[in-house]
Every structure is written in C-alpha cells, then in structure tokens.
C-alpha cells in the first residue's frame, strides 16, 4: 500500500512537471493586464478573469493571427498529402518488391532525414527567390518535403512489412499485377499505418520553424510558429497575448493527442523499437 502511494506520488509529480507550464500559460492568458506584473504575476489564480488577451490576439491588424493559422493548415495539409502519396509507392517497393540499389536508397533516405535544414537553406532560398516563390505556400511545401518524405517513407515501410505476405501471394497466383496488388490489397490494409504516419508528418510540418522564418517573411504568408515567435516586440513583450496565442495553438494539439495517442505512440516507437 505504502509503495503504491509513493508510486502515485511520483506519477503525480511527473504529471505536474509536464503540465505545469500549460496551466501557467492558461492562467496568464485569462489574467487582466494589470495582474501580469508585480505581486499578482505570481498568483496561481485570478479573481477577475477576462478574455482581453484573446481579443487582442485576434484583433491586432498588424499580425493576422487567423491568417497564420490558415497558412499553417494549408501548408501542413498539402505537405502531408503530397509526401504520403509519394511515400506509399516507395514504401511498398522497398517492403515488397525486389530491385537493385535498395540498400543504397534506404541509406540515402536515412541520411536525408538526418540532414540539418541549415545545410540546404542557402540554395533553396536562392532558388525560391529566383522564381519569386518566396512568400507563397509552394515556397514552404517544397522544402518541407525534405524532412516529410524521408519520415513518411521510413514509417510506412515498417507498416507495409507487417502485412502478411500470404495475402499478396494468393493475389499473385490469381494473376494480379504488382500495381493491382498494391492498390487493391496493400493500401486498404495499411490505412491505419498511413493515418498514423500522416499525423506525425502533419505535426512535423506544423511545427517547422527555420524554413518558415526565412522563406515567408510577409505577414500574409507567415505560419503560426513564426507568427507567435515574432509576437515579441522590440522593447515590450506582451506576455498576456503570447499566453493566449499559445493556449489557442496548444488546444487543438491536445485534442489531437488525446484522440490519437495510441496511434501516435505506435508511430513514434515503430522506428526505434524492434518488435
């Protein structure tokens, strides 16, 4: 019994450490401006909560917060869809078909996933600038593929390998071509894995910072991480507004994580753990 109490005490402490910053952001976001400084700054509750910070976030004309959210949604969704379609074909070929240079391909994909983004940014930036693609969605989707595609291929390959070989064998006997086997049998079976991979790719694209910061510098094309990071003014930092903004972007992620935690965990660990 005693051990159990200690255990739950430990779990509670761990949860507190993990969740406290979120709680603190939330409290800060509903405190009236006057309570953000001085002794009230450290108080764990507020007697007169308000939504002023949230109103500020959405009403500032200089930083179109909704537009940032929209930009991130568009860029992340297209990046995810695009990389997943291409990665599905590649992953199937790697998992199921025989071809020369498979190991080289795998090695290259692994190497590319380890590339520091800073190593490709100069030519990518110059290229996009030359064709006037900076400050556009395409200008981000293209470089985002550098990390999204290897991530998707690597994850999907694991899932494609888990599909029993017998299913395909029997289809083969029935005379189905590799292409038919791919989209009639494998793709439907691997949908859950594809979905898990999609979540991981989407989150990676949603959170990307360096490319977004350098390529899309106009307010109308900034993504949410860049938008929030540049909330900090030159001299004053509007902590209440920043807190409200972080709460707004964190809530959808919390919902996503609560709904799909099993899948996300499976996706995250499939690369690192050999079953």
């Amino acid at each position: 019994m005693r051990r159990k109490i200690y255990f739950y005490l430990f779990v509670g402490l761990f949860l507190f450490a993990v969740l406290f910053p979120f709680f603190w952001q939330f409290i800060t976001s509903i405190k009236p401006p006057a309570e953000l400084f001085g002794k009230h700054a450290f108080s764990f509750y507020t007697t007169n909560p308000g939504l002023q910070s949230y109103i500020n976030v959405f009403s500032d004309e200089k930083r179109p917060f909704l537009r940032y959210l929209w930009n991130s949604t568009v860029v992340s969704t297209i990046t995810t869809a695009f990389s997943l379609i291409i990665a599905s074909f590649t992953a199937y070929a790697i998992a199921r078909l025989q071809f020369r240079g498979k190991n080289i391909l795998l090695g290259v994909i692994l190497a590319v996933s380890m590339f520091p983004q800073i190593a490709t940014i100069a030519p990518v930036y110059l290229f996009l600038q030359q064709f006037d693609w900076t400050n556009s969605y395409f200008g981000l989707i293209l470089p985002y593929t550098t990390f999204a595609l290897p991530l998707a291929i690597w994850n999907l390959t694991t899932y494609y390998k888990q599909i029993p070989l017998e299913l395909e064998e029997s289809a083969k006997v029935d005379g189905a071509s590799a292409f038919q086997r791919f989209y009639r049998i494998i793709v439907p079976l691997v949908l859950p894995g594809t979905f898990t991979t999609a979540i991981l790719v989407f989150i990676a694209a949603w959170n990307e910072f360096l490319f977004a910061l350098t390529i899309n510098t106009e307010e109308m094309y900034k993504t949410i991480p860049v938008g929030i990071a540049l909330f900090q003014g030159q001299f004053i930092i509007p902590w209440g507004d920043i807190a409200a903004a972080t709460v707004i972007v964190t809530i959808p992620l919390i919902v996503l994580v609560l709904f799909f935690q099993r899948w996300i965990v499976a996706g995250l660990t499939s690369g690192a753990v050999k079953e």
Binding site: F209, I224, P225, T246, I254
Partner: peptide, 19 residues
C-alpha cells in the same frame, strides 16, 4: 500519463520556448 507525455512533444518548439 501517456497522453500528457505527448503534449510537450507535439507543440511547436517555439511555443515551448516562449512559455
């Protein structure tokens, strides 16, 4: 526990840095 563990991982680094 598992879900809350995922939240810091899922938020943008920029957001955690600001927090």
């Amino acid at each position: 526990v598992r879900a809350s563990v995922l939240v810091p991982w899922a938020i943008p680094t920029v957001v955690s840095a600001l927090m």
